[in-house]
Design a protein around this nucleic acid. Structure first.
Lengths: 202, 202
DNA sequence: TGTACATCAGTGAACGCGCGTTCACTGATGTAC
DNA sequence: TGTACATCAGTGAACGCGCGTTCACTGATGTAC
C-alpha cells in the first residue's frame, strides 16, 4: 500500500491538472486562484491541498505533463512520415507542431516564470533541447534523401526551434492574415537550405 | 488649466510606471499588486487610483511607453550606421535590439495577456509591424550596397522579427552558453542571404 | 514680487471581500480473514 | 464471495490576512490682482 497511489487519487490529480490548463489559459497563471481551479475541476479546495502544496507546483506539473505529451505527439507524427518522399516529409515535419493558442499562452507565461525562478530555467532549457533533438534527425535524413548535407546540426536544430517559436506569435497575432502562415512555411524552407549544401556524388 | 496636467502629476505618473516595470519583471504581472507598485514608487495606494483605474490600464501604458521608447532607440542606433561599410552595418543592425531579460519577461506576459484580451491583440500586432518597418530599410540598403537584391521585403521583415524573438529566448535560457549568441548571429546572416539574390550588373 | 484664494494631487484610514490555508470530519477504497 | 476493519481521500466550515477600492482630508501647486 505504501508506494501504490489509489486510482481515485490519480484521477483527482489528473482532473485538477486538466482544469488548471483551462483556467491558466483563460485567466493567466498569475491571476488564477486555487479556488478557480477547484471549481472548474469540481472539487473543494481541500482536495487541492491534498494533492499539491501550491499553485507553483501545480503549474510545473502541468507544464511538464503537457510539454512531454506534446513532444510525444511530435515524435509520433514524425515516425509516420515517409522518408521516400522527402519534400512531403519536410512539409509534414513542419506541420507536426501545431500552433495552439491556449498552449502558447501557457508556455509564454511559464517561460517568463522560469526566467525569474532559478531552478526552473534549466528545466525549460532541457525540454527545449529534447524537442530539438527529436525534430532534428527527421530533417537531416529528409535533406539527405534530397542530396543535401547538413553543415551544422546543432545550429540547424536551434534555428528550427527559434523559427518555430518566433513565427508562432506572428501567426497567433494575425489570425486573419493567411499570409503569415505561408511566410512561416517559406522561412522554414529557407532555413533548411541555408544550413545544408548539395552533396557531391562520390 | 483644463488641458494642462501639472508637472507634479506627470512626475507621479512616471514614477508609478517606472516602479511597475520592476515589480512586473520581478513578480510577474499577474502576481503584482497595486500596493507593491505604490510601495516601490513611494506613494500610497490613493495616488495610484488618482492616476490609473486598474493595473491592466497601467500595464498597457507601461508597455506602450517602453516599447515605443525601444523602437526609438532602435531607430537611433540604425540612423548612426555607416552604409558605406555594409558588413559592419548588418552586424550593427543585428545588435541594435539588445536582449534584455526583464523586458523579455514583460513582453512575453503582455503578449499572452493581449492574446486573451480582444482589444489588445491589434495593439501588439501594430507595434510589431512598426518595429519591422523600422528595421527593414536598413537591411535592404545594406544588402543593396553588397550587390544583393531583396526578393520579398515583407517576408524578410517578418523573418527578421521572428528570428529575433525566437532566438532571444534561447539566449536567455542558456546565459552560460556563449554559442547561443553566435548561432543567433549566424541565423540572422543566413536569413539575410536566403531572402536576397546577387544583383546582375546592368 | 507678494499675498490671498481656488483647485488639484496625494494621504491615510476604513471597509469588506476573496482567497489561501488548516483541520476535524465522513464517506470511499482497499485489505484480511 | 462476504463481512469487518483500517486507512485514505476529499469535504466543508472556519479563520484571518492581504489587498482593492473609496473618500473625507490636508498640504502643494498654480492663478489673479
Amino acid at each position: 500500500m505504501a508506494a501504490t497511489v489509489t486510482k481515485r487519487r490519480a484521477r483527482t490529480r489528473q482532473r485538477l491538472l486538466d482544469a488548471a490548463l483551462h483556467v491558466f489559459a483563460d485567466e493567466g497563471f498569475g491571476r488564477s486562484t486555487v479556488e478557480q481551479v477547484c471549481d472548474r475541476a469540481g472539487f473543494t479546495r481541500g482536495a487541492f491541498y491534498s494533492n499539491f502544496s501550491s499553485l507553483d507546483e501545480l503549474f510545473l506539473a502541468l507544464w511538464e505533463e503537457r510539454s512531454a505529451r506534446m513532444l510525444d505527439d511530435v515524435r509520433d507524427a514524425l515516425a509516420g512520415i515517409d522518408p521516400d518522399d522527402p519534400e512531403a516529409a519536410v512539409r509534414a515535419a513542419i506541420d507536426a507542431t501545431p500552433v495552439d493558442d491556449a498552449w502558447y499562452r501557457i508556455t509564454a507565461e511559464f517561460t517568463a516564470h522560469a526566467l525569474r525562478t532559478p531552478g526552473l530555467r534549466r528545466v525549460v532549457a532541457a525540454r527545449e533541447e529534447a524537442i530539438r533533438d527529436a525534430i532534428l534527425p527527421v530533417f537531416v535524413t529528409a535533406l539527405g534523401r534530397l542530396g543535401r548535407q547538413v553543415t551544422d546540426e546543432r545550429a540547424l536544430g536551434d534555428a528550427l526551434v527559434a523559427v518555430h517559436d518566433g513565427t508562432a506569435v506572428q501567426v497567433l497575432l494575425q489570425p486573419e492574415d493567411e499570409g503569415a502562415r505561408t511566410r512561416r512555411q517559406a522561412l522554414f524552407m529557407n532555413v533548411l537550405s541555408a544550413y545544408s549544401t548539395p552533396r557531391e556524388i562520390s
